[in-house]
Amino acid sequence: MYRTFLITTLPLLLAALPLFVSSAQAETGLASYYGGRGHGLTCAHRTRPMGSMVTVRHEGRSIQCRVNDRGPFVRGRVIDLSMSAARALGMMRSGVVRVSLE
């Protein structure tokens, strides 16, 4: 009876696992930009591993940028983008915009 229970519930557990992992990585909040280090589409994030790629979405635009710095250190902001990344998202005039991260 124990084996039957384990076999019938295992597919359900495995099916739910990717949803749990995926939702843990998503974030929404304010983004700003900086003149920062490096060239290209880079960003600063407080907790994501250095070198990892982050997808940033804003008003129908989406970019992928590489984490190469720590920050932002301004309360309420979730990410700081390089000027190139901010330009690609179309946020240069606004300065601070609401974004979603994956």
Rank of each mutant, 00 (worst) to 15 (best):
Y2K: 13
Y2P: 07
R3F: 14
R3E: 09
R3D: 01
T4I: 09
F5M: 11
L6C: 13
I7Q: 03
T8S: 14
T8M: 06
T9W: 13
L10C: 13
P11D: 11
P11H: 12
L13I: 07
L13H: 03
L13K: 08
L14A: 11
L17H: 03
P18D: 07
P18S: 04
L19E: 10
F20A: 13
S23N: 12
S23Y: 12
S23H: 14
A24P: 05
A24S: 15
Q25Y: 08
Q25M: 14
A26K: 13
A26L: 09
E27S: 10
E27N: 06
T28Q: 09
T28V: 14
L30Q: 04
L30G: 15
A31N: 08
S32H: 00
S32C: 01
Y33Q: 02
Y34G: 07
Y34M: 09
Y34E: 14
G35K: 10
R37W: 06
G38P: 05
G38K: 10
H39S: 15
H39R: 14
G40S: 01
G40A: 04
L41Q: 00
L41D: 00
L41T: 09
T42K: 13
C43Q: 12
A44M: 04
H45S: 14
H45F: 06
R46D: 00
P49N: 03
M50H: 04
M50T: 06
G51R: 01
S52I: 00
S52F: 00
V54R: 00
V54Q: 02
T55Q: 02
V56S: 08
R57L: 04
H58K: 12
E59V: 05
E59G: 01
E59N: 08
E59P: 01
G60M: 06
G60V: 10
R61N: 05
R61M: 08
R61C: 11
S62D: 03
I63T: 13
I63P: 11
Q64D: 07
C65S: 15
C65R: 10
C65T: 15
N68F: 01
D69R: 01
R70Y: 04
G71N: 10
G71A: 09
P72T: 02
P72Y: 00
F73V: 11
F73P: 02
V74R: 02
R75L: 05
G76F: 06
G76W: 13
R77M: 12
V78T: 10
I79H: 05
D80A: 12
D80H: 07
L81P: 05
S82F: 02
S84T: 01
A85P: 02
A86P: 05
R87M: 07
R87C: 11
R87P: 10
L89A: 07
L89M: 15
G90M: 10
G90N: 11
M91A: 05
M92Q: 03
R93C: 05
S94H: 12
S94D: 11
G95V: 13
G95W: 06
V96T: 10
V96I: 08
V97T: 04
R98K: 06
R98W: 02
V99H: 00
L101E: 04
L101A: 09
L101K: 15
